[in-house]
Design a protein around this nucleic acid. Structure first.
Lengths: 203, 203
DNA sequence: AGCGTAATAAGCAAATTTGACTAAGCCGGG
DNA sequence: CCCGGCTTAGTCAAATTTGCTTATTACGCT
């Protein structure tokens, strides 16, 4: 719950403020927070005594907005949560890795093409990130550590780009997917590799 | 839904088989699948006509197990899903990046220490991964592309380890977090940086 | 002056995920 | 021989997330 952190920073805020801030950091991508979750989270945190509803103003006939503040307990909990992320290593679920584990289900040439395409997408991302990093807008109006986050993405992206290239070559080279020992015992039959058995494709 | 892929491979299976396979790949870490989700997914996929329940055996008085098979429609859908992951780039949500964005909330020395600790955790991970990669067990009984997945993790991990070291140094160097222009306009007041205002810490 | 579009501020039902729980069979040790 | 613990197979309620909807006001354009 990094919502808590945002309320901690920005002290008294209402839900919509949090939402805008999150969207402006495009945090829906790298955090786990879609706009809809915010109000639920705010109410839950209030129930748990980590936040306190300060006031409820109403401007015209628009929906009333409730302003929240963090309690002492909330600050404490936030620091616990924060430290958990700083000191521990959590593997993050990556759908591409999941998809890659089905490599034998892809025709070799398509797999290689997709990897090269991926490398290009990553390269494009890297370049636009570099541009942001060097842009005056980021250099002058954002805290320095925002740039450092970009550098982390850059480092990871470069590593992954290289990997894509190397693996694409190996796939094209035609090496067998099966482990050295059990060369002949098919096991992955039914998948499209070099010889797809035309099974029940008659619509 | 990579559950579908697993059923596609392993053709007729019951839920518990899928669960074991997923756990043996420790897929609960890198995919998005806890054991509890499996049965729901199987039923949902069956409702959508992507799977077909084949039979329901009962051994003794243990819970009946239902065996599933993939339909032609299911194969089609799986390939669509698979290609979506192979050809597109999805940013994955990373809780550490989220936590790092609150860097100014951490005392400098703790932040640096945490980063060095992280580098060490990553190094340990790298070494155990290297060991797996070279182990006979993986080399002889797992498809080659499993090793390739390890290499991707390795590449990313090495990149991140380097970053941790570099950033730890910068934090220790004492550079200001604020952007070059607005050096003096505090803005992040209330956070623990060089001078923590002893607010309401009595108890 | 009128009209369409964007911004403001949330609410809600439905879909998903999670983690804990059941409850019987099997196996080895004391 | 019988007790405890592991494996088998799956269920279930609760927590979370998602994406869509509502309803007013401000703004820009012609």
């Amino acid at each position: 719950m990094m919502i808590l952190g945002l309320v901690r920073w920005m002290q008294p805020v209402h839900g919509y403020d949090v939402r805008r801030e999150l969207l402006s950091w495009s945090a829906d991508k790298w955090a786990n927070v879609q706009p809809g979750s915010i109000y639920h989270a705010l109410r839950k945190l209030t129930d748990e005594g980590l936040l306190r509803a300060v006031s409820t103003e109403q401007v015209g006939a628009r929906p009333a907005r409730t302003t929240y503040e963090v309690t002492a307990k909330g600050v404490e909990e936030f620091e616990t949560l924060l430290r958990a992320q700083w000191w521990q290593l959590h593997e993050v679920p990556d759908p591409f890795v999941a998809a890659f584990s089905f490599l034998p289900a892809m025709p070799r040439d398509e797999a290689a093409a997709a990897l090269r395409n991926r490398a290009n997408l990553i390269r494009a991302g890297i370049e636009s990130m570099r541009a942001s990093l060097e842009s005056d807008w980021v250099r002058n109006t954002k805290p320095v550590h925002v740039g450092w986050m970009f550098e982390l993405w850059l480092a990871r992206a470069e590593a992954e780009m290289g990997w894509c290239g190397r693996i694409a070559e190996r796939i094209e080279s035609g090496v067998s997917y099966l482990p050295a020992s059990m060369e002949q015992a098919e096991g992955w039959s039914g998948w499209t590799d070099s010889a797809a058995p035309g099974e029940d494709d008659a619509k």
